[in-house]
Simulated assay, not measured.
Amino acid sequence: MKKKIVMVLGTVAGLALLGFGIFQSGVSSANLELSSDEIREIVETQYPGEIIELGLEKDTANAYYAVKVESEGKTYDLRLDGNSGEIVSLEEAEKLTSNAEKADDKVDKQKDEKNDNSKKNNGESKKEDSDNAKDNQENTNSNDKKESSNSAIINSDKAREIALSQFSGTIENIERDEDDGQLIYEIEIVNGEDEAEIKINAYTGEVLVVDIDSEDDD
Rank of each mutant, 00 (worst) to 15 (best):
A103S: 07
D217P: 11
D112C: 03
L183S: 08
I51Y: 07
T204K: 07
Q182P: 06
L96N: 15
R79P: 14
A61R: 15
K3L: 09
K2D: 10
D81E: 03
S36T: 09
L208R: 07
T11P: 00
A13P: 00
N122R: 09
M1E: 06
Y185T: 00
K146F: 14
D135A: 14
D194M: 09
E41D: 15
S89C: 09
Y203T: 06
A13K: 00
D213N: 09
L208H: 04
M1W: 12
S149G: 05
L90P: 06
K4Q: 14
D218E: 14
I52Q: 04
E91P: 15
L56W: 13
F20P: 01
D194C: 04
N121H: 14
N143F: 05
S130D: 09
E186Y: 00
T60L: 10
I39R: 00
V6T: 04
E138P: 05
A30H: 07
E172G: 07
R79E: 13
T45C: 01
K127R: 09
D211N: 13
L164S: 01
Q46V: 12
D112Q: 14
N117T: 14
E197L: 03
F167L: 04
G181I: 06
I52V: 05
N117Y: 15
A93L: 13
V190S: 13
S28H: 11
E101M: 04
E113V: 05
K145V: 12
S142P: 13
V8P: 01
N117S: 11
S118G: 10
D105F: 05
I212G: 02
R176N: 09
L96G: 12
E94I: 09
D108I: 15
N155I: 05
E72Q: 09
K199G: 04
N143K: 09
D37R: 03
L34V: 08
I200F: 02
I154W: 11
